[in-house]
Structures are given as structure tokens and as C-alpha cells.
Simulated assay, not measured.
Amino acid sequence: MKRLVLTAAGLAASLLATGAASAQSWTPVPVAADERSGKTRQIRCSVGERPETTCAFTPLFGDGSFQLDGPDIAVRMIIIDGEGSLFEVFGPDRRVPVGGIYTRNPRDRACWISTAGGPSPVCAR
């Protein structure tokens, strides 16, 4: 497995490259059935300054929370009372908080922006 370490100036997270499998060059991190609130689907996503790419989007908990998996991307956005917290995902039960509080971007509702810390924006289209 390889890791990409991003700078502390707004890109303080390290994003996990999740290996190779099937026709895609990455494997989504498994999500427990009791955490899912819908089916995983392919979308376009971006995290921080990384270019937009194809990702697996898994809705979580029925409250707007989600997991994104893609090339060099494995993150979870957990939403509580309209604010998000970002976690780097290393495995089904291994997640590390990235830091910062995320709010919806009023100009682009597909994106969450960090008020301090973590990579920003986190976009799921």
C-alpha cells in the first residue's frame, strides 16, 4: 500500500491508496451493513487539491454522512447537526479523524469546506 501525505496548509490529511482489484485500480474499503443507508454508487469526487476522479460513494446512517473510496482516496464524512467531521479510512474498523469542521459550500452544494485543518473542499458529484 502507498500513502500520499499532503501539506498542513489546508491539506493535512494523508489519503490511503487502497490497492488494485478488478477493472478499477483501487478497492473500496468495506462498509458494515448496519452503517449503510443506501447502495454504493459510482460518482465523481475530489478531496482537497487533488483532481476530480471516479469514486465509490456509500451513504451512511441516513443522516447525510458518506464514505468516498477512489484512487488515493478513502475518507468518511460524518454529519452531525449540519456540520461534518472527516476521517481517513484504513479498514472497516480503522478510521482516524483528520481535523477541522466541515460545512456545506453555499455556492456548490456538492462540496463540503473545512473551517480549519483538513483537506478542503471534499466534493461528491
Rank of each mutant, 00 (worst) to 15 (best):
F66R: 05
S25L: 10
R41K: 11
R107E: 15
D72W: 09
G117P: 04
S46P: 02
A116L: 10
A116Q: 13
I113S: 03
L15R: 02
A74Y: 07
A116W: 03
A12C: 13
D108W: 04
G70E: 00
S25G: 09
Q24E: 07
A124P: 01
V96F: 02
Q67A: 12
A116E: 11
T27L: 07
Q24K: 11
G64E: 13
Q24W: 07
G38C: 05
P28Q: 01
G64R: 14
L60T: 03
C55W: 00
G118V: 03
V47F: 10
A8H: 13
L11K: 07
R125H: 02
R41Y: 01
P97S: 08
R41C: 00
S25M: 09
R94V: 15
M77C: 09
L68F: 01
L6A: 07
G10S: 15
W26D: 01
S25V: 10
R3L: 15
A17G: 14
G117Y: 10
M77W: 01
P92K: 11
S120F: 07
G70R: 05
D81Y: 08
P97G: 08
E35P: 00
I73A: 08
T53H: 03
P121D: 11
G19L: 11
A32P: 00
F66N: 01
P121M: 12
T40K: 02
A8K: 14
R44C: 00
P51H: 04
G62D: 08
G48D: 08
S22T: 12
T54W: 04
C123W: 04
M1R: 09
R125A: 01
F87G: 04
T53N: 01
S22N: 10
Q67H: 08
S25T: 08
K2L: 15
A124D: 03
I79Q: 05
G117I: 06
V122Y: 10
R125C: 00
L4A: 13
S37Y: 06
S25C: 06
E52M: 05
P30R: 02
W26N: 04
A32S: 07
G38I: 04
P92I: 13
R36C: 00
W26L: 05
T40G: 06
C45R: 01
M1L: 12
G99M: 08
P30F: 06
A116K: 12
Q42C: 00
F90T: 14
R109Y: 09
P71H: 01
R95A: 15
V75D: 04
G62L: 05
S114C: 08
V5L: 11
Q42I: 00
T115W: 06
V75I: 13
T53F: 01
D63I: 04
C45H: 07
A23V: 09
Y102K: 13
V98N: 04
Q24M: 06
E49R: 14
G91L: 08
L15T: 02
G84F: 08
L16V: 13
Y102S: 12
A32W: 03
I78M: 13
F61Y: 14
L16K: 09
L60D: 02
